[in-house]
Amino acid sequence: MCTYTTVHADVDGSAKGPGSAWFHAGRATVYFDHPVHAMAEHTLNIDLTDPAGDPARRVALELTAESARALVAAIQQALAAVPEELKV
């Protein structure tokens, strides 16, 4: 199916994308839908983009649901290990 579901998050950081160039990542678009490349019917897709920039400046992830949950858990684990004074 096309889920049409699209969730946005404003983010602030950098991503390394096409042509091995770094760019400002200002937005994450997250959706569970057909992938372009991954060999699965549906994947959890994340587009990290600079909303003001060229559409080609995009880091795209297509993860199976299971691996997306593993990624979330890994991020949570890494953040949980950070001392309080560094969490800004």
Binding site: T6, H8, R27, T29, Y31, V36, D47, T49, P51, D54, P55, A56, R58, A60
Partner: peptide
């Protein structure tokens, strides 16, 4: 833009 990049922008 490449079709997949354009689709990402349109969806966003």
């Amino acid at each position: 833009a490449a079709p997949d990049d354009a689709a990402a922008v349109a969806r966003a």
